[in-house]
Structures are given as C-alpha cells and as structure tokens.
C-alpha cells in the first residue's frame, strides 16, 4: 500500500473502535427492539413465535390514543413551563446581582436530585393527609379541606409541575452559557439605537438564544418522552390512568404483563415519533439560521 492510500485509510481505521462501540450499544439493542416488536418474546428475550403486526394493533386502540394525548400534554406543558420559568431565571441570574453565585447553585439543586428521590419527596410533601403543603394551607386557614394534589383531577397537573421544577435547572444552565457569549458591544449598540427592556430581549437576546433554545428544547422533549421513574414513583400512572404516560405503558406492558413484544412496539413508535419531531425542529432551526 502506498503512502497516499495509507493516509486515506487511516481515518477509517481510527473510526473502527467507535463504530464497534456504536454497533454494540446502539444498533444491536435497536435491532433487538425491532424484532421483539414483531414477535412474542418473554421478559428475558426468549423467542416464542412471530406475531406479525399483532403487537402494533395496540397502537390503534382508544386506550393508546388517550395515553399518547396525555403524554403530549405532559411534554408540551412541561417544556412550556420549563422555558417560561427557565428563561426568566436565566435572565435574572445573568444580571450582576448580589449573591449571584449562591442563587446559581441553588437553582441547580433540583437537577442533581435523583428522579426516584425527588418523586418520593414530592409525594410526601403533597400528600393530602399529612403532607406539609396541605398542613400549611389548612393551618393558615387558606383551605378548609385538604387538596388532593395526587387525586384523579389534579394528578397530571401536579406531575407536570414537578417536571418543570426538575427540568428548569438544565435550561437555566444552557441559557446562562449562551447569554454569556453575547458580546457586550451588541448590547451597547442596541442601547444606543434605543432597544431597551422588552424590545432588547425580543429583537436581540431571543434571536441570539434561539439555537441554544432549539437544541435544549429538543433534548428536553426527548427526555420528557422517556421519563418514567419520576412519575411512576409519585403516582404509578394512576389514579384511574390519569398520569399514565407512554413510558409507564411500556413498563407495565413489559414488566407487569410480561409482554415484551407489545412494549417494544410502543417503544419503536415512541422513538420514531420523537425522531420525526426532533428532525423537523432541527431542520426549521437550520433554515432560520441560514
């Protein structure tokens, strides 16, 4: 092999370990998931028989449509809440206020608390019988009966609120990093042109933050679709399925019903669904950037 050909081959040789790892940790499980979805497979992957599209039939049932709708509410409201609160906090923490370092640290705390612990903590705090929130509201005379935060009517709103609480730090960190990259000259020039307050935010800050926002939003969306433990610990998907999301349906299908095929079919659907949304979001962002 001459030197030129060797040089050409070298990058591919360096890529081999990465390709092997990607195949092992990504392609093989994905392939497994795909063929499970067309088969009857038990909990530990023992193949029983082919199922054709039978596992996918669940995707056209009313139960699944409701779960999908509920998951969309969870994702959209959760992300909207995270963006609203996260943007306000990031803008505030970007100002030279006293104790900024302390507040930035405090904001990160929900992010570093494991989902299971956070879920358990919130279910205690919001418990209708002896949770601190209800006790406080009753003691202050603001309510006469305890509020059933985790009852059928409020459970979804409650877990969305907890999702916002848990997701805000990630966005704050992302936006703070982006805000710090906005050159001081831009701000000065905008001020000279009379762009202050809301105008400055709308016409200067927001466009400059958009790439980070789109990327963060995409990541948050993918996470929101796959979050399982936070909600499962708090409500188990109940009451009366009020908080049963796609991830919980997948878990119940696989580990309670022992139906790995059915669970895989929903997982494949979720993956494609999230990928398509992410694709369009990214595409739109790159168009706007151009």
């Amino acid at each position: 092999m001459n030197l030129k050909r060797k040089r050409k081959a070298l990058p591919y040789i360096f890529l081999v370990p990465a390709i092997v790892i990607i195949i092992m940790i990504f392609a093989i499980p994905l392939f497994n998931l795909l063929w499970y979805s067309f088969a009857k497979v038990d909990l530990i992957g023992n193949f029983n028989s082919w199922a054709g599209f039978n596992n996918y039939k669940y995707l056209v049932t009313e139960t699944f449509t409701k779960t999908l709708g509920r998951t969309m509410i969870w994702v959209v409201c959760g992300i909207a809440g995270i963006f609203l609160v996260g943007t306000i906090l990031a803008l505030a923490l970007n100002k030279p206020i006293p104790g900024r370092g302390f507040f930035r640290t405090v904001v990160i705390i929900p992010w570093v608390i494991p989902h299971v612990f956070a879920g358990t903590m919130w279910s205690w705090v919001l418990n209708s019988t002896n949770g601190i929130v209800n006790t406080l509201l009753l003691d202050l005379g603001l309510i006469k009966e305890p509020i059933s935060f985790l009852g059928a009517e409020l459970a979804l709103a409650t877990v969305i609120f907890i999702r916002i609480w848990k997701g805000v730090p990630f966005l704050v960190m992302s936006l703070l990093s982006a805000l710090q990259t906005i050159p001081a000259e831009v701000e000065e020039a905008a001020k000279l042109d009379g762009a202050l307050g809301w105008k400055y935010f709308w016409h200067i800050t927001l466009p400059l933050l958009r790439p980070v926002m789109v990327m963060s939003g995409t990541i948050l969306m993918a996470w929101s679709f796959t979050i399982f433990d936070l909600v499962y610990v708090i409500t188990g998907g109940g009451p009366l399925n009020a908080t049963e999301l796609l991830s919980i349906t997948i878990y119940k299908k696989a580990f309670i019903n022992g139906d790995m095929g059915g669970a895989s079919a929903i997982a494949i659907f979720t993956m494609l669904f999230v990928s398509v949304i992410a694709f369009f979001l990214m595409k739109r962002n790159s168009k706007e950037a151009d």
């Binding site: 418990n127 209708s128 019988t129 002896n130 009966e145 305890p146 059933s148 985790l150 009852g151 059928a152 009451p239 009366l240």
Partner: peptide, 21 residues
C-alpha cells in the same frame, strides 16, 4: 373514611392508624 382514599395505598393507612387519625 379519611379524605382522598384514591391517594392512599391500603398499607399507607398504617401511619394514620398509628397516629390515631
């Protein structure tokens, strides 16, 4: 019964019983 039965696991009542609720 106590309020909000739908939030309580049957065994979760144990604490309420212990505390005289």
């Amino acid at each position: 019964t106590q309020a909000n039965s739908i939030e309580q696991n049957p065994f979760g009542i144990r604490t309420l019983f212990r505390d005289g609720e």
